[in-house]
Amino acid sequence: MSLPEEANQSKQLEFVTLVAGGQNFCIEITQIREIRRWSPVTILPHSPSHVLGVINLRGAVIPIIDLAEKLGFAKIEPSERHVIIISAIEERIVGLLVESVSEILGVSPDMVRETPRNSEDPTTRATPGIIPVGDDMTKVINLAALLPDQGQVAA
Protein backbone atom coordinates (compact mmCIF):
# COMPACT_ATOMS: atom_id res chain seq x y z
CA MET A 1 0.00 0.00 0.00
CA SER A 2 2.86 2.39 0.56
CA LEU A 3 5.99 3.46 -1.18
CA PRO A 4 9.22 1.79 -0.24
CA GLU A 5 10.51 3.38 2.95
CA GLU A 6 13.59 4.92 1.35
CA ALA A 7 11.49 7.05 -0.98
CA ASN A 8 10.39 9.30 1.81
CA GLN A 9 13.51 9.37 3.90
CA SER A 10 13.72 13.15 3.77
CA LYS A 11 10.31 13.64 5.36
CA GLN A 12 10.79 11.15 8.13
CA LEU A 13 8.86 11.60 11.33
CA GLU A 14 10.42 10.56 14.61
CA PHE A 15 8.55 9.12 17.54
CA VAL A 16 9.67 8.13 21.01
CA THR A 17 8.11 4.80 21.89
CA LEU A 18 7.05 4.08 25.43
CA VAL A 19 5.18 1.63 27.56
CA ALA A 20 2.22 2.70 29.65
CA GLY A 21 -0.29 0.32 31.21
CA GLY A 22 1.68 -2.51 29.66
CA GLN A 23 0.95 -1.35 26.08
CA ASN A 24 3.05 0.33 23.41
CA PHE A 25 2.54 4.02 22.66
CA CYS A 26 4.58 6.71 21.03
CA ILE A 27 4.82 10.49 21.07
CA GLU A 28 6.24 12.61 18.28
CA ILE A 29 9.71 13.69 19.23
CA THR A 30 9.07 17.38 18.58
CA GLN A 31 6.65 17.40 21.51
CA ILE A 32 9.25 16.06 23.90
CA ARG A 33 11.63 18.29 25.83
CA GLU A 34 13.52 15.73 27.85
CA ILE A 35 13.23 12.40 29.59
CA ARG A 36 14.15 12.01 33.24
CA ARG A 37 13.97 9.55 36.03
CA TRP A 38 11.07 9.69 38.44
CA SER A 39 11.65 11.91 41.47
CA PRO A 40 9.26 12.58 44.34
CA VAL A 41 6.58 15.18 43.66
CA THR A 42 4.84 17.82 45.72
CA ILE A 43 1.22 16.79 45.99
CA LEU A 44 -1.42 19.26 44.88
CA PRO A 45 -4.64 19.58 46.86
CA HIS A 46 -7.97 19.08 45.10
CA SER A 47 -6.29 17.57 42.07
CA PRO A 48 -7.67 14.77 39.89
CA SER A 49 -6.11 11.42 40.71
CA HIS A 50 -4.10 11.25 37.48
CA VAL A 51 -2.25 14.40 38.56
CA LEU A 52 0.53 13.13 40.77
CA GLY A 53 1.81 16.54 41.80
CA VAL A 54 4.44 19.04 40.72
CA ILE A 55 8.20 18.94 40.41
CA ASN A 56 10.85 21.61 40.12
CA LEU A 57 12.41 21.53 36.69
CA ARG A 58 15.20 24.10 36.73
CA GLY A 59 13.05 26.64 38.51
CA ALA A 60 9.80 25.96 36.70
CA VAL A 61 6.85 24.27 38.36
CA ILE A 62 5.86 21.29 36.22
CA PRO A 63 2.80 19.11 36.86
CA ILE A 64 3.33 15.35 36.58
CA ILE A 65 0.57 13.22 35.10
CA ASP A 66 0.15 9.48 35.29
CA LEU A 67 -0.11 8.67 31.59
CA ALA A 68 -1.33 5.13 32.20
CA GLU A 69 -4.20 6.29 34.35
CA LYS A 70 -5.03 9.07 31.97
CA LEU A 71 -5.25 6.52 29.16
CA GLY A 72 -7.62 4.42 31.21
CA PHE A 73 -5.25 1.87 32.72
CA ALA A 74 -4.50 1.21 36.35
CA LYS A 75 -2.48 3.79 38.26
CA ILE A 76 1.28 3.42 38.09
CA GLU A 77 2.94 3.07 41.47
CA PRO A 78 5.88 5.34 40.80
CA SER A 79 9.36 4.17 41.72
CA GLU A 80 12.96 4.90 40.75
CA ARG A 81 12.54 2.63 37.71
CA HIS A 82 9.84 4.78 36.18
CA VAL A 83 10.41 7.55 33.74
CA ILE A 84 9.01 11.05 33.26
CA ILE A 85 8.67 12.40 29.76
CA ILE A 86 8.74 16.19 29.86
CA SER A 87 6.59 17.36 26.97
CA ALA A 88 5.40 20.63 25.57
CA ILE A 89 1.68 20.85 24.86
CA GLU A 90 1.08 24.15 23.18
CA GLU A 91 2.28 26.66 25.76
CA ARG A 92 2.31 24.27 28.67
CA ILE A 93 5.06 22.03 29.94
CA VAL A 94 3.82 18.79 31.46
CA GLY A 95 5.62 15.72 32.77
CA LEU A 96 4.18 12.31 31.84
CA LEU A 97 4.87 9.35 34.10
CA VAL A 98 5.34 6.18 32.05
CA GLU A 99 6.60 2.67 32.80
CA SER A 100 9.48 2.84 30.38
CA VAL A 101 10.78 4.47 27.23
CA SER A 102 12.04 2.11 24.52
CA GLU A 103 13.47 3.70 21.39
CA ILE A 104 13.25 6.38 18.78
CA LEU A 105 11.25 5.26 15.79
CA GLY A 106 11.77 6.90 12.40
CA VAL A 107 8.93 6.43 9.94
CA SER A 108 7.63 8.16 6.85
CA PRO A 109 4.38 10.06 7.34
CA ASP A 110 2.35 7.62 5.26
CA MET A 111 3.21 4.85 7.66
CA VAL A 112 1.04 6.51 10.24
CA ARG A 113 -2.45 5.11 9.77
CA GLU A 114 -5.67 6.32 11.16
CA THR A 115 -6.82 4.38 14.19
CA PRO A 116 -9.87 2.31 13.26
CA ARG A 117 -12.77 3.61 15.35
CA ASN A 118 -14.23 0.67 17.10
CA SER A 119 -14.86 2.13 20.50
CA GLU A 120 -15.09 5.37 22.33
CA ASP A 121 -12.75 4.47 25.16
CA PRO A 122 -10.33 7.16 26.33
CA THR A 123 -7.35 5.37 24.82
CA THR A 124 -8.77 5.33 21.32
CA ARG A 125 -9.77 8.97 21.46
CA ALA A 126 -6.32 10.07 22.58
CA THR A 127 -4.53 7.96 19.94
CA PRO A 128 -5.69 9.02 16.49
CA GLY A 129 -2.93 7.13 14.72
CA ILE A 130 -1.16 3.79 14.75
CA ILE A 131 2.17 2.75 13.31
CA PRO A 132 2.88 -0.88 12.43
CA VAL A 133 6.18 -2.09 13.84
CA GLY A 134 7.13 -5.54 12.73
CA ASP A 135 4.35 -7.86 13.80
CA ASP A 136 3.17 -5.40 16.37
CA MET A 137 2.03 -1.80 16.29
CA THR A 138 2.42 1.29 18.41
CA LYS A 139 -0.22 3.93 19.05
CA VAL A 140 0.49 7.61 18.47
CA ILE A 141 -0.63 9.80 21.37
CA ASN A 142 -2.17 13.18 20.63
CA LEU A 143 -1.14 15.07 23.74
CA ALA A 144 -3.33 18.10 23.09
CA ALA A 145 -6.43 15.87 22.94
CA LEU A 146 -5.33 13.83 25.91
CA LEU A 147 -4.61 16.81 28.11
CA PRO A 148 -6.78 19.69 27.02
CA ASP A 149 -5.89 23.01 28.61
CA GLN A 150 -7.25 22.89 32.11
CA GLY A 151 -7.22 26.67 31.82
CA GLN A 152 -9.79 27.40 34.49
CA VAL A 153 -8.13 30.73 34.66
CA ALA A 154 -8.78 33.49 32.23
CA ALA A 155 -6.79 36.26 33.84
Binding site: P40, T42, L44, P45, H46, S47, V51, V54, I55, N56, G59, A60, V61, I62, P63, E91, R92, I93, V94, Q150, G151, Q152, V153
Partner: peptide, 22 residues
Protein backbone atom coordinates in the same frame (compact mmCIF):
# COMPACT_ATOMS: atom_id res chain seq x y z
CA UNK B 1 1.14 28.52 33.33
CA UNK B 2 1.50 24.77 33.27
CA UNK B 3 -1.30 23.61 35.45
CA UNK B 4 -4.12 25.91 36.44
CA UNK B 5 -5.60 27.46 39.49
CA UNK B 6 -5.94 25.46 42.68
CA UNK B 7 -8.46 26.40 45.33
CA UNK B 8 -6.70 27.77 48.38
CA UNK B 9 -3.28 27.90 46.73
CA UNK B 10 -1.87 31.14 45.36
CA UNK B 11 1.34 29.80 43.89
CA UNK B 12 4.42 27.78 44.61
CA UNK B 13 8.00 28.29 45.57
CA UNK B 14 11.14 26.24 45.45
CA UNK B 15 12.80 25.47 48.74
CA UNK B 16 16.45 25.09 49.57
CA UNK B 17 16.37 21.36 48.90
CA UNK B 18 14.97 21.93 45.43
CA UNK B 19 11.50 20.71 46.37
CA UNK B 20 8.41 22.63 45.58
CA UNK B 21 6.32 24.07 48.39
CA UNK B 22 2.84 25.38 47.70
Amino acid sequence: GNYGEIAGISGATILGDGKIAL
